[in-house]
Every structure is written in structure tokens, then in C-alpha cells.
């Protein structure tokens, strides 16, 4: 087989061109990579957004019913719709008695310690309950004169709550042996 110089040189020629092109391309790619490292590109950071395909209507009756059940069962938290809110001291007392019993509010070692701090004698207790009764009478009169004042209505509701709590606590904290004045036991809880 005879060596053909022309074919050889033509082959070399194309080979050099291909190698040159590859070399230049490699060089350009390397530069691009360097640029990516050295120059900050425009990066938009977006906080991760949780997918929530099922939009829950937390104000729906169904959701609220489940919420009431869950809060009551797990945490003893009672959610009362406005329409079912107690409207007098007696109703509050009944409502609280049920809830205190259902959730063991006044039971247990820690509760006993707390009730001990509140301990009072019958005279002081009667005096303080009389004050609440007087307040209820005064605020009720104010509400009659200004029946649409939400501030007064709120105040009266809070008086009812206090009265109800006072009545319920009577069996737990009133004792003839209790200090005459609450101030006497204050140093103990400092």
C-alpha cells in the first residue's frame, strides 16, 4: 500500500481544525463557568410556600363544631357561641359548676394550694359578696338607662361572672378559722 501524501495532509488539515475548535470551545465553557462563580446572578429568593390545595373555611359551622369538640377534649377549653352565653349570675353559676366539674378545675394538689391562698372567713366573704351584689345593682341600673352601651353590658357580664365564681368557691375557701383579713396571709405568697 502506497503512502498518499495528499490524503495525509488533507486529513491532518481537518484534524487540526477540529482540535482547534474543540480547544476554543473548551476555553469559552471554562470562562463561562468561572463567570458563574465570580459574578452573582440575579437570584430571587422566595420563601417556601406550603402547598395547601384544600382551602379550609375556618368560619364554617362544620369547622367550628369540630374546633369546639377538639378544644374541649384536648385542652378543656370551652368555646361558647354568643347565642348560648349565660345571661345572669345564676346562669353563669350553673354553667361554671358544670365546667369546673367536667374539667376538674378545682381538683388536684395544685388547685388545693391555690384555693388555700384564697381562704377567707364567713364575715369577709359575706362583705365581699355584698360588694359584688351592690355593683351588680348599680351597673344594672346604668344599663337600663343606657341599654345599648356595650361597655356597660360587658361590665355587668363580668360582675355576673365574679358573683358566680364567688358562690362556687364558697364551699372551698370559706372557713371560720381563716384569717380575718386577706392581708394577713399575703406575706406567705410573696
Amino acid at each position: 500500500m502506497k503512502f498518499n501524501k495528499s490524503v495525509f495532509f488533507i486529513g491532518i488539515f481537518f484534524l487540526v481544525i477540529i482540535i482547534s475548535n474543540i480547544y476554543i470551545n473548551k476555553q469559552l465553557e471554562r470562562k463561562d463557568k468561572e463567570q458563574a462563580y465570580s459574578l452573582k446572578k440575579n437570584i430571587v429568593t422566595v420563601a417556601p410556600v406550603k402547598e395547601n390545595n384544600e382551602e379550609v373555611d375556618v368560619r364554617s359551622d362544620e369547622y367550628q363544631r369540630k374546633l369546639r369538640e377538639e378544644m374541649s377534649a384536648k385542652y378543656g377549653i370551652v368555646i361558647t357561641p354568643d347565642a348560648q352565653k349565660p345571661a345572669s349570675a345564676q346562669e353563669w353559676e350553673e354553667n361554671l359548676r358544670n365546667n369546673f366539674a367536667q374539667y376538674n378545675v378545682l381538683e388536684g394538689e395544685n388547685a388545693e394550694k391555690a384555693l388555700k391562698v384564697m381562704e377567707t372567713n364567713p364575715q369577709d366573704y359575706d362583705k365581699q359578696m355584698n360588694h359584688i351584689d351592690q355593683s351588680i345593682a348599680v351597673v344594672s341600673e346604668q344599663l337600663k338607662q343606657d341599654p345599648f352601651n356595650p361597655q356597660i353590658a360587658e361590665q355587668l357580664e363580668n360582675q355576673y361572672k365574679l358573683k358566680a365564681v364567688g358562690v362556687i368557691l364558697k364551699e372551698k375557701v370559706v372557713s371560720p378559722d381563716a384569717p380575718a383579713m386577706a392581708t394577713e396571709i399575703m406575706p406567705e405568697i410573696k
Binding site: 374546633l67 377549653i77 368555646i79 352565653k85
Partner: peptide
Amino acid sequence: VLYIPTNDTVNIYPQTSL
């Protein structure tokens, strides 16, 4: 944490679960 979305009145009593 506890998130309670409601327009009603929420009553919180002393509970060990809290």
C-alpha cells in the same frame, strides 16, 4: 402554640394539658 380561629367566646380553665 394553639391557634383558635373563632368569633365566639373562649373559656380557659386551669388544665394540665396546657
